[in-house]
């Protein structure tokens, strides 16, 4: 939901990078076809990851050429629609909607204005997505409510708060069969990792503003960077172990790149503060 999950380009083969890009563009196309012009504006790297893991293993990617939504003068290679891509598109809309709702609540009357405006634009898309995936919408709503309660109580347990967001992401995978179990475990720890990375990223800001921050609540004002990094590493380890058990076909290499190289790099950047700059880059560059 925050653009943390991206590939590390220098270690990707061209064909794998092309596949990544085609998935990104394909998801954009799918959002446009299902939801119109607004929804594709919210596309980000994390949703692309979701599309990649949800893809049927045997499904050979079919490509087409199409005009880029952001720049209609350019034609790009895109993945054709598939059930997995549609699932990822629907879930992206739902996740974006709830993230906007969250910002509106957090940022007050004036600060929340941009989010309120965007939510207004997205409302119709969200209503469509909610009808298509009622189960996912319910679980996102419920998990965020639990999270809000815990944050209100200033919960000192890192795991308990992260668990809500982890379960939220876990519910993005269809819960059936072996592959479903594997995806559930992978997405649970991705959600946990994202929640912790985001909490660490907001730490300084939250401390200044006197807001609740789960990392500060767990490790105190002094903080314990090593312990936080270790617990995040452990989630990365669990993700790697789950990835190796699943069937991901030609997307395996791309997913390995993201989990073994991309996420650790982002984690390092979040800890040393360079993330604020890097996250604005369109493509994960290697000059860090």
């Amino acid at each position: 939901m925050f653009g943390y999950v991206r590939p590390y380009r220098p270690e990707l083969k061209c064909k794998d990078f092309d596949l990544y890009r085609a998935t990104y563009c394909g998801l954009c196309r799918c959002l446009r076809r299902r939801y119109g012009l607004i929804a594709p504006l919210f596309l980000n790297f994390d949703f692309t990851f979701l599309a990649l893991v949800l893809w049927e293993a045997e499904g050979q990617a079919e490509f087409c050429r199409g005009r880029c939504h952001a720049n209609p003068l350019v034609k790009k290679t895109m993945c054709m629609d598939s059930p997995a891509l549609e699932l990822a598109a629907d879930e992206s809309v739902i996740l974006t909607w709830w993230k906007l709702r969250d910002s509106i609540k957090d940022d007050g009357l004036w600060g929340g204005m941009p989010a309120r405006l965007l939510a207004g634009l997205l409302r119709r898309s969200y209503k469509k997505a909610r009808v298509r995936r009622p189960g996912f919408d319910q679980s996102v709503k419920q998990c965020l409510e639990e999270l809000e309660t815990l944050e209100g109580e200033k919960c000192p347990s890192l795991d308990r708060t992260a668990d809500t967001f982890a379960r939220l992401l876990q519910s993005a995978a269809p819960n059936e069969g072996e592959q479903g179990r594997i995806l559930g475990q992978l997405l649970y720890h991705l959600g946990r990792w994202i929640y912790l990375a985001d909490a660490r990223d907001d730490l300084a800001e939250d401390l200044t503003a006197g807001r609740y921050n789960p990392v500060a609540a767990r490790y105190g004002p002094e903080g314990d960077e090593a312990a936080l990094a270790l617990t995040m590493d452990q989630s990365l380890g669990q993700m790697g172990a789950a990835l190796q058990l699943g069937e991901f076909g030609c997307r395996k290499v791309l997913l390995e790149n993201m989990i073994y190289l991309g996420l650790p790099l982002v984690q390092r950047a979040v800890f040393d503060g360079s993330w604020a700059q890097i996250k604005k880059q369109k493509i994960w560059r290697n000059d860090t």
């Binding site: 308990r160 452990q234 989630s235």
Partner: peptide, 8 residues
């Protein structure tokens, strides 16, 4: 459960 901090 995946609660790595408490497990530690």
């Amino acid at each position: 459960k995946g609660w790595m901090d408490e497990a530690m």
